[in-house]
């Protein structure tokens, strides 16, 4: 527990430092990439608990993100302006902002229970289809809500709260907030994995009948995993809304869910490090390929190359970049030649 508080403090200081460094020295466009990567990491690390650790194939993650985004955005708009109306953007208050994020996470988490409890009784393909359906239903229901702006969604969502001492540059606090939650989700995911609950989840993935026979309540544990993923997808949605200042239901199509799956599979299902690596690669790759596309003047080339890279990867390394391994001091030590100690 004291370590947890110290760790959180270190995270806050670290993210503040990162935010300051970037806003002083780095161009805004690169900061934008970094923020998108951060949001992807939160989504991927959360979903990895469901798809990677527990082995339950869910492809409706965007649905939870959508709910989090709309709940957080609406709460934030009402807190800051008192009504949905036009006018210049303002910064959300710190307490209100945190409360909005909590609302988003809890709303998505509760929905995780409601959807997960029945859907997780399904296996394999059937679960995948049910979760896909959930994601699409969520998006379509949001599109139909005129009070939430219908297909055009919510606009004029307040900026994230200003940090003391940080520059007033637009989006100058987003790196801090997004990466603070990147830090939180990674720490919690690793802790979950390395606990009796994490072992129970992996046991369910490896052999559900044996897990149940050992007294692991698989139905309940699967919902726990699902809620963990949903909660952080909700938070990611709220951060996304505050970062973009507007959300539309169509920001959360099935394509986004599948993108998160691609991150996991590419990085290595079941590995937190893999989820992070996958999030970085999948978010960055299309951006990096775009200049090449423009230079050659062939439209859509970047998507072709991107798809080819994914196919190549799956052919030659189907277990993903990291497989199920984690980046740890032990692994680093093994990779550095010369200093190898014979382990017993």
């Amino acid at each position: 527990m004291p370590r947890t508080i110290a760790l959180l403090m270190a995270g806050i200081v670290g993210c503040y430092g990162l935010n300051w460094f970037l806003s002083e020295f780095i161009e805004v466009v690169y900061v934008d990439y970094l923020n998108l990567i951060g949001l992807s990491i939160i989504l991927a690390v959360g979903l990895n608990v469901v798809n990677g650790l527990t082995g339950q194939f869910s492809i409706g993650h965007a649905g939870f993100m959508a709910v989090g985004a709309f709940v957080g955005a609406l709460a934030s708009i009402l807190f800051t302006y008192g009504e949905i109306a036009a006018g210049p953007l303002e910064h959300a208050g710190l307490a209100q902002f945190l409360l909005c994020l909590l609302f988003s996470g809890v709303a998505a988490g509760v929905l995780g229970v409601v959807v997960g409890a029945p859907a997780l009784r399904l296996r394999g393909d059937y679960l995948a289809i049910a979760t896909l359906g959930f994601g699409e239903i969520t998006r379509i229901l949001l599109t139909a809500q005129d009070s939430l702006g219908g297909p055009t969604g919510l606009k004029r969502i307040p900026k994230m709260p200003l940090l003391p001492g940080a520059s007033g540059w637009d989006g100058g606090t987003s790196v801090f907030w997004i990466y603070l939650f990147v830090f939180v989700v990674i720490v919690l995911a690793v802790r979950l994995q390395r606990s009796t609950f994490g072992r129970a989840l992996i046991a369910i993935r490896e052999n559900e009948l044996a897990a149940e026979t050992m007294g692991v309540p698989s139905a309940r544990m699967k919902v726990v995993a699902f809620v963990f993923g949903a909660f952080f997808a909700g938070i990611a949605g709220a951060l996304y809304a505050h970062y973009q200042h507007s959300v539309r239901p169509d920001d959360f199509t099935a394509v986004r869910s599948i993108e998160v799956i691609v991150m996991l599979v590419l990085g290595g299902l079941g590995s937190v490090t893999g989820a992070v690596a996958g999030a970085v690669v999948v978010t960055l790759l299309p951006q990096l390929l775009r200049p090449i596309e423009e230079a050659l003047g062939i439209d859509g080339l970047s998507m072709v190359v991107y798809a080819l890279l994914l196919v190549t990867m799956m052919v030659f390394r189907p277990q993903g970049i990291f497989g199920q391994r984690e980046l740890s001091l032990k692994l680093l030590r093994r990779l550095i030649p010369g200093r190898r100690k014979e382990s017993p």
Binding site: M1, R3, T4, L188, R191, L192, S195, T196, F197, G198, R199, A200, I202, A203, R205, E206, N207, A210, A211, M214, G215, V216, V224, G270, Q324
Partner: peptide
């Protein structure tokens, strides 16, 4: 068996049902 878990972790999984802690104990260490 739970193939991807270690031998020790496999045996530990048997002891899971007697754990008297909740998820937050583990998340907050």
């Amino acid at each position: 068996l739970f193939d991807e878990l270690s031998v020790l972790e496999n045996a530990m999984t048997g002891a899971h049902q007697h754990a008297r802690i909740n998820l937050f104990d583990s998340l907050l260490r």
